[in-house]
Nucleic acid binder design. Structure first.
Lengths: 351, 351
DNA sequence: CCATCGAATGACATCGATAACAACAGTGGC
DNA sequence: GCCACTGTTGTTATCGATGTCATTCGATGG
């Protein structure tokens, strides 16, 4: 037979006994060569049979497939990837701030990850997860493509990843320099929706809470002020703050201390900020929404379950994940997908 | 030189020009053979030099390393993995229920994933993420180890994963059959802490809200009733329910409708249930915590930011992720780590 | 009865990196 | 001056699967 027939794993014991392949026994993984020897065919025939190649006769194919199942054969993806020069793997780089306190509590990467996994695994790709902490390079190098999930105000991560030369898709707001493909939700629209709602309910002096160094927040502010202006309302204050509850508290406390004309509506860049703001308002004996109306962002469970229930801008993360995945796949296929901007919607509740 | 010298990527163009290696240009990835030809040494010397082998002379090593950097050489992990018979990859199987409505919103896998990534990447391992939806098998086969993150009441996932023969660690409550290694937080203690607190604050007729088909919940119930009994309080009711807000509402509504003696304390298996319960109580004109005291589980942001702020049992997920990672690593090294049970703590707030 | 064609199968080289062993130069001891 | 020894580099085989080209066999046609 083949020259490799003799090279069986257990030289002493008879390798033909099916007992060799007790599932769970890791002793010497089976290879196609083992199957080939057993089935009295060549290795390549086994390879073809297992891939359902039409050039293998029906019964031969079935015989080999059955044999593989019986013997507990496990396919070696590494070998195939080497041979085929592709890893069938997409690196997902989660570039979260190393802030210890509530670094990234939102559903952010979770639902996004869900969407990504769903799409990628059904397409036969693996998802390699890395945090930006260490050098993501190592993992990304080996991948067929990469997805960057960051909330960074800066774009250092993008700059690190781009030169690697792997197809890259980034979650967030498209940048002026159009280099990588972006997928994100429509922050401009989100801001506009919030503004429209606040104006509709009769508010005229509005506050924006969020760090506009984040491109996404800058977009929200843009949509927000644009809509305000066209409705004759004014932006009473813009307070840069983190995405946290405490930042929201502090921001509103500062606002109340500084008696610069007052305000009757707040748009916060996260539900946590919004809840913090409401806490500060309540402590100052102001009621929501009678005295001040509040709108949050992200539509997290805590918005829904809070009393009073928080009105919030909802972004469809799962869909976002799916689109991210589709875009990398497209890039890998040599296509040139456009950046995607997903619509947001306002979930109106009590505030 | 070596026989491979002639086998350059671009046969027409002179392959010696460094301009070939513009970073970002993916044209024909460089291999160690290319570096070897360029440096006038053998491939194996390049391999050794790049791995900082002491058997390569200091200056040779540096020369090759510099050359690799200049030419933009990118290491091929697949080839090494094939040769070394290990993938340096751990599969993380997230076996979440496909329930569309808030399938898994808690920080659950996110912080857990964070801990896992942190530990695994610093140990030089990659994290392969798969959802239980499709057959996780494919990815797990290629991995050196696997971590199962599930909330399943059943253990079908474990049963699927175990026979694959890959070192497996599972998040959750240890099972009677001691087969896989478990890492989880001390649910028994969590239940006991909640009971102790409720009893301390003078409650005597208590309600347990949660589906005890989940092993973790069963443990909580066990610790809960045990402590109750020793303090002379009674379990007034046990209502099986999902982890959702709505389930909490429904459970308490049912309880109030059915006038079977009343209750003055509730222990819920998730913060969402607890919040739902409070909503139902409030709607029934009962006040928290004066009429009924409530304790939740998971210490999510929504517990902290709710008014009144919800007392909740906290589990350290990041730590859990780290321990999960450590356990797989230990298994891979042929050690036999014990299951780990992490302590929980009660975060006392207003309710 | 031989040429030809197609279906089925096989031999070989290959992907890129590495372990095991071989070879070779220079050094010191006797 | 010869041998053993160390330090450095090279040769070869190998991991497991697959593309390419070659081969075999039976069937068909002239």
């Amino acid at each position: 037979m083949s020259t490799r027939t003799a090279k069986s794993r257990s030289p002493a014991a008879p390798p033909e006994t099916a007992a060799d392949a007790i599932p769970g026994t890791d002793a010497g993984r089976l290879t196609m060569a083992d199957l080939a020897a057993r089935a009295q065919v060549s290795i390549i025939t086994v390879s073809r049979a297992l891939r359902d190649s039409p050039s293998v006769r029906e019964d031969t194919r079935r015989r080999i497939q059955d044999l593989a199942r019986e013997m507990g054969y496990r396919f070696n993806a590494t070998a195939r990837n080497l041979r085929l020069q592709r890893s069938h793997t997409i690196a997902v780089v989660v570039d979260m701030k190393p802030t210890p306190e509530r670094p990234m509590s939102g559903p952010f990467p979770l639902d996004l990850l869900g969407g990504i996994c769903q799409e990628l695994t059904t397409a036969g790709y693996n998802v390699l997860l890395t945090t930006g902490q260490s050098q993501p390079a190592a993992a990304v190098h080996a991948a067929d493509g990469a997805i960057l999930l960051g909330q960074g105000a800066d774009d250092t991560a993008v700059r690190q990843l781009l030169p690697i030369g792997v197809p890259l898709v980034v979650w967030g707001a498209p940048q002026p320099g159009v280099d990588p493909v972006f997928v994100g939700s429509d922050n401009h629209q989100g801001g506009a929706l919030a503004a429209a709602r606040l104006v509709e309910t009769g508010r005229r002096r509005l506050v924006f809470l969020g760090d506009t160094r984040h491109r996404e927040n800058a977009e929200r502010l843009h949509g927000f002020t644009e809509t305000l202006a066209s409705a004759g309302a004014v932006l009473a204050a813009l307070v840069p703050c983190d995405f946290t509850f405490n930042a929201g508290v502090a921001a509103v406390q500062g606002l109340l201390a500084d008696a610069s004309g007052g305000f009757d509506g707040i748009f916060a860049c996260s539900d946590a900020i919004a809840l913090g703001a409401m806490r500060a308002l309540t402590e100052a004996k102001l009621t929501v929404p009678d005295d001040v109306s509040v709108i949050g962002y992200d539509d997290t469970p805590m918005a829904a379950f809070h009393t009073p229930a928080l009105t919030s801008v909802h972004q469809n993360w799962t869909e976002g994940g799916v689109r991210l995945a589709q875009s990398v796949l497209a890039l890998i296929n040599g296509e040139h997908p456009d950046s995607v901007i997903l619509p947001t919607r306002l979930v109106v509740r009590a505030t």
